[in-house]
Simulated scan of single mutants.
Amino acid sequence: MSVSKLKIGCFRYDTTRPLFDGTVPGDNLEYTMDTAATLPEIFERLIRGNEFDVAELGLTFHLRLLEPDSPFVALPIFPNRVFRHSCVFVNTRSGITGPRDLVGRTIGEFGTYGQDSGVWAKGILRDEYGFEPARNRWLIGGLEHPSAPFGFISHPHPENLEVSEVPEGKTLSAMLDTGEIDALFSANVPQCVLDGSSNVARLFPDFEPLERDYHRRTGIFPIMHTIVARRDLLQEHPGLARDVYRTFTAAKDAAADRYRHDRRLYQVPTMVPWMHALVEHNNEQFAGDWWPYGISANRVTLDTFLRYHYEQGLSSRQWKVEEVFAPELLDT
């Protein structure tokens, strides 16, 4: 279909870089790409500023907008997905040596209670280790810079859950380092960890084997973000959702093809030692498509996130995949 030039807001990933570079032509689309220094900036510019026709959005943000009714519709395009055993950090003097030691602790989370990485981490810890978020105190604020919880989205949580803001002028990273909080659920690695502070460590220091085992057992590769489009635009232009889907898929496939091609070059276009070994190792675990888009290949992962979202009191009911994504793309 033909539509006037779309404004697309998205982070620059391997999977989307061809869209920024213009190396993948739009499937009947004319578009301009825009990004931001941080992902929450993209989300806020979409939700509060109404700046984009199509944009990346965290799954939990999209689900919160669905109640009562969202101006956006999700497309089964997933530019950001990360295994999340690695996202739980602890103060080494807190006495936390395993998941069961989290009970009764003060835990920090960036921006909102139940950001996408936090939803996954809490859900996995509950399924695998019996973790109960309601048995902890939660502090919400800025990771590296003092800031209030996100002001552009609602903040649902169970009534029996103790959730409060980080004290004025404080940051979660510094509070973890000093022991003012016992643990931190964070999508980003805090600076105190990057600086090598002896006061902080991951809950699961050797996280890769755990995450690989989790994937082998469950088939789940956690999804953080989706792509959404303006509902009115999709209604005005039948076929637009599929055109956007095909264009993003072509960009992702082009990125995957680059890794396949670079196998014969030992992945020398990257500067990561033994990158070729990692690629070959992943080829053994991920059959065919490492990073699938569409509903069928991701239904188990999506159903699990929707269950976690409801169990954690972030949704008033458990949403179904068919209610969340564009009807014309449910066959993907």
Rank of each mutant, 00 (worst) to 15 (best):
H237E: 05
R246N: 10
F185H: 12
W274P: 07
R230I: 05
R258D: 05
V244M: 05
L234S: 03
Y245H: 06
D243P: 00
G219N: 00
W290C: 05
R263F: 09
H276K: 13
F185E: 08
E280Q: 12
V268T: 15
R216Q: 10
G179V: 01
G196T: 08
S197E: 07
A229D: 07
A187K: 14
W290R: 14
D289N: 10
A229E: 04
M275I: 07
N283P: 00
K252I: 05
V228Q: 07
D232W: 05
M271H: 15
F248M: 07
L176C: 03
R242L: 05
I227W: 00
L265H: 10
D232G: 09
M271I: 07
L278T: 15
D232S: 13
E180Q: 12
P205H: 05
R216S: 12
S296G: 12
Y266R: 10
L176Q: 06
D262M: 07
D177I: 04
T247S: 09
Y214K: 04
N199C: 05
T178G: 12
G239C: 06
R264A: 11
D232L: 01
I181R: 08
K252D: 04
L240K: 02
E180H: 07
S186T: 11
P190V: 11
K252N: 06
Q235L: 14
F248Q: 01
L210C: 02
L203V: 00
V228H: 08
Q235Y: 09
A251P: 04
W274F: 15
N282Q: 14
R258Q: 11
L265W: 13
E180K: 13
G219F: 03
M271Q: 13
D253G: 08
H281E: 15
E236N: 11
Y266H: 15
G219P: 10
A250T: 02
E236L: 10
P222F: 00
N283G: 11
P292Q: 00
L210A: 01
V189M: 06
F207D: 05
I220F: 10
F221K: 01
A255L: 04
Y259K: 11
I223A: 01
R212C: 08
R258F: 06
D213V: 14
W274C: 10
R260W: 13
L234T: 06
T270I: 11
D232P: 06
H237R: 12
R231D: 11
P292C: 00
D289W: 03
Q235S: 08
F185V: 14
Y259I: 13
A187C: 11
Q191A: 13
T249D: 15
H281A: 12
D195F: 08
A256R: 14
P269G: 09
D195L: 04
P238E: 04
S186P: 05
H261L: 06
A277R: 13
L176M: 12
A277V: 15
G196P: 03
T218D: 01
I181W: 05
A254Y: 12
P190F: 02
Y293T: 02
V279K: 11
